[in-house]
Every structure is written in structure tokens, then in C-alpha cells.
Computed example of a mutant assay.
Amino acid sequence: MVNTLDPAASPLDYYGGELRRFREAAGLTQKQLGAITSYTGSLIGQIETARKVPTFRFSEIMDAALGTGGALTRLTELVLRSELPAWFRQIAELEARATEIYVFQAQLVHGLLQTEGYARAVLGVMDRTDLDRRVAARLARQRILEKEYPPVLWMILDEAVLHRGIGGAEVMRGQLAHLLSFLDDPRVNVQVLPFTAGAHAGLPGPFNLYRFLDDPTILYSEDYEIAHPTANPAEVAARSLRYDHLQAASLSLRDSAELIQRMLEERYGDLP
């Protein structure tokens, strides 16, 4: 029996309905489409019935197999955006539109540079419901770094972030290696605020600044599950000044990479 979907219920339901429509128009069963694309018919069925979230890779392969002209891939961004917490969707929009993003994080690696394992460990604390969906939605945000004209990202991480063993040794090894992979990318810049900096301008807490070509700069901070975006000029100016001082107190890009490399080798270098 074919499960019925209400395409208007959510972007995920709409995607599932479109995938089924394209597949049936091609005269293929789920199993036959799976054989063509190297996915299981079961997975295709779960996505068609909105029980699983598609990845961009899945959509690209389905578009190629079904000749949809990229329709499913274009839908995927909407689907994954809808899987973000409602309070965070505005911030994802800011990330997507910004020309420059400035991040200070004292607790963990920011979502734009998290690996899948790290994101899963972070998002799974206290709540593992729909974890696959939430991880996929977080990782999808990183596609802004692959655009033709990606934003310039500056990320300052407190040295404590490197020491905090989130997800276990293998996950941390992958995460630190991922940070190092951007060393030669002038648009993705990672600096470490060392313990030796002592008292610093970021002690009140982490924050982000989003700059745009024609719109005012947005300051963003959060408290557990509450977002605090503002374009108030005085607040933006005050936090921009704090960011300047944080950068001045941080290690250079090269020295930051050397510190991350040492952490990688000393703590996780002998892992398989």
C-alpha cells in the first residue's frame, strides 16, 4: 500500500512527493531506482514518505538518474533549512547572505567548521531525537563556503576548544585535522586565543558578526535556545571593538595552525 503524503505539510513532505512523482514518471520502482543509483530501495522509500532527510549528494544523484534538471537539489536547501530550530533559521539566512562572518567561540568549534562526528556529539547532548536530521541540517549550512563567491570567515577559538574532548579521540582527531585543512584558504581563517592571553575581551561570552554589501552589520549571540540578533549601531560597534581586541590577543594564523597541529600530534597522533 502506498503511503499518502500531504505535500503542503512541510518542505520535507513536498520533497518526498516530488521524488515519488519523478520516479513514477520515469517508470521505475524504488528498487529499480536504487539499483541505478547505488542507494537501497528502502532508503528511497523512507525519503519519499518523509521519514528521512535527503542529503545534497543524494539529490544530485537522483536528479542525474531521473533527468529532473536539478529540481531535487534546489529543493534540498529548503528542506534542510526547515529542519533547523525555528529560532535559528534567521541566523542561517544571515550566514547565507553575508559577505563577511566574524566568529568568537569559547566552548566549541562553530557549526560552519564542524565535522559530522563533532556535530553529532554536540547535538546529541541531552537530546538524541531526530539526530540524523539535525546533523544534516547543520552540515548543510557549510555549503555557503562552497559558493562561487563565498563569504570571508574569521573564526577565533579559545584554546579550551582544542582541549575539550567532544565525541571521543577519533572525532577530535578528525575535527582538528579539519581545522588545519583551511590553512591555505584565504577565505577561511582560524585563530586560537591562547590561555596565555589571560583576561580578554571575549570573557562575557561568544558572539558572531555578519557583514553585508548593502545592509547594516548584524550582531548575534545566543543563550541556550534563544537567539539575540541586533543591528543596533552602538551594540555592533562595541562588539566589533571587542573582536578587534580578541584578534590582537590571538595567535597568528600560522602560529594557530602550529598549536592545533601540536594538539593533534600529542593527543591523537597515535590513533589508527
Rank of each mutant, 00 (worst) to 15 (best):
I226P: 01
L78E: 14
H163E: 15
L75P: 06
E222F: 08
A86E: 14
P151D: 13
F58G: 04
A140E: 11
V171E: 01
L251S: 08
L253E: 07
T230E: 03
D215P: 09
A238S: 10
P206H: 03
T129L: 11
D244W: 03
L213Q: 14
M126Y: 13
T4A: 07
F207W: 04
Y39H: 02
Q114Y: 00
E95K: 11
P85C: 07
R74G: 10
A237K: 10
E148N: 10
R141A: 10
R254Y: 06
G70T: 01
L259E: 04
R81V: 15
F58V: 11
S42W: 03
L251C: 08
A137P: 06
G167K: 00
H200Q: 04
S59D: 08
G202V: 01
F195I: 06
F58C: 11
Q105Y: 01
T99E: 11
P11M: 11
M62C: 10
R242P: 02
D244P: 04
E258W: 01
D214L: 12
S42C: 04
Q90E: 12
R20Y: 00
P150I: 13
F182G: 06
P204R: 02
P85G: 08
A140W: 10
Q261K: 15
P229K: 15
R128Y: 02
E83P: 08
G16L: 07
A197D: 05
N232V: 12
V152I: 14
Q46E: 12
Q32F: 01
A136R: 13
H245W: 07
P85D: 02
R57P: 01
H110Q: 09
R254M: 05
E258A: 15
P233A: 04
L246H: 03
F56T: 11
L78K: 13
S181R: 05
E18S: 11
D184S: 14
R133K: 11
M1Y: 03
I36P: 00
V122G: 04
P204W: 12
A8G: 09
Y210L: 10
G117I: 04
F22I: 02
V109S: 01
R97F: 07
F58Y: 08
T217A: 13
A249Y: 01
W87F: 15
Q261I: 10
R254I: 14
Q175Y: 06
Y102H: 14
Y118K: 07
P206K: 04
E265R: 10
L5F: 00
V188S: 01
G117H: 02
A234Y: 06
E146G: 04
V103N: 11
Y224N: 11
R128I: 14
F212S: 06
L72T: 00
V122I: 04
S59Y: 05
D130G: 09
R51S: 02
L72D: 03
F182R: 09
L219N: 05
L28Q: 09
L19A: 04
Q105F: 02
E60D: 15
T115V: 10
P150A: 08
R81M: 15
F182A: 06
E266H: 14
L246S: 04
Q261C: 08
A177K: 10
G167W: 01
M62E: 04
S42V: 07
V79C: 13
H200C: 03
